[in-house]
């Protein structure tokens, strides 16, 4: 009798314990009420809008400077991970911009530089460790092959950064959301730079099919292998 009771009790107990543990350790909600990622406290509130935003023709001291994303985020087109610009990059300009040197944020920046300490930025866009997103491939595709505007291409995933101060996640970055692009039919003509029969790039979840109608370009459906991202 005892023997029959023991296992169910153990199981139920364990289930409750593990559930309680998991509930207490809940990760941040995927989206906040306004549909964005959580507000992240950064050591310096970096104003993306000031750097990348549009010029204000009426007042050069307002508005942005329309700096290309890739000027600072230079690693995105070179590597799978985008990294964070080195401090040296900030100093390259700010050393010679005397007009803002007395601003608190710039003072803070100089403090880090003089101490030769990296700024402990917090990650705003963080994928789980089992996902490999390749920045280089996406930048090459959209910016270099298709000549799309850089801010548009980066914005597919990062949102309208030029309007932000401290960056905040705007897209869910979950697999279903990835699929929402990758399941669209993409033309894979030479115009896009992709070889139709080549192994190299299949942009959606299935292998590209050649249609019998030669007028219609063949369509592709994303990486058809799990390991393209989960490796």
């Amino acid at each position: 009798m005892y023997r029959y009771l023991r296992l169910p009790i153990l199981l139920v107990g364990l289930f409750l314990a593990v559930s309680a543990y998991a509930a207490n350790n809940s990760q941040p909600a995927l989206t906040t009420e306004d549909g964005l990622g959580p507000q992240v406290q950064q050591p310096i509130e970096f104003p993306h809008n000031r750097h990348a935003g549009l010029h204000d023709a009426s007042d050069p001291n307002k508005g942005g400077m329309e700096i290309n994303c890739q000027y600072c985020h230079t690693y995105a087109r070179r590597s799978a991970v985008a990294g964070i610009p080195p401090l040296q990059k900030c100093m390259g300009c700010h050393n010679s911009i005397d007009s803002v040197k007395d601003r608190p944020r710039i003072k803070e920046l100089f403090k880090y530089w003089e101490a030769k300490k990296p700024i402990p930025w917090k990650k705003v866009h963080d994928l789980p460790d089992f996902v490999r997103f390749n920045h280089e491939r996406h930048v090459k595709r959209f910016v270099e092959q298709q000549n799309r505007p850089v801010q548009e291409a980066c914005g597919y995933c990062h949102g309208d950064v030029k309007e932000m101060t401290v960056a905040r996640r705007q897209k869910p970055l979950a697999m279903g959301w990835c699929a929402s692009c990758h399941e669209k039919d993409h033309p894979v003509t030479a115009e896009g730079g992709t070889p139709v029969d080549g192994q190299a790039y299949w942009y959606s979840f299935q292998k590209p099919v050649k249609t019998s109608d030669s007028a219609l370009a063949p369509k592709a459906k994303g990486p058809n292998d799990c390991w393209q991202c989960h490796k």
Partner: peptide, 11 residues
Amino acid sequence: IEDGKETVVSY
């Protein structure tokens, strides 16, 4: 996803 939790250290 752990936005805002991990520190990303640059050069």
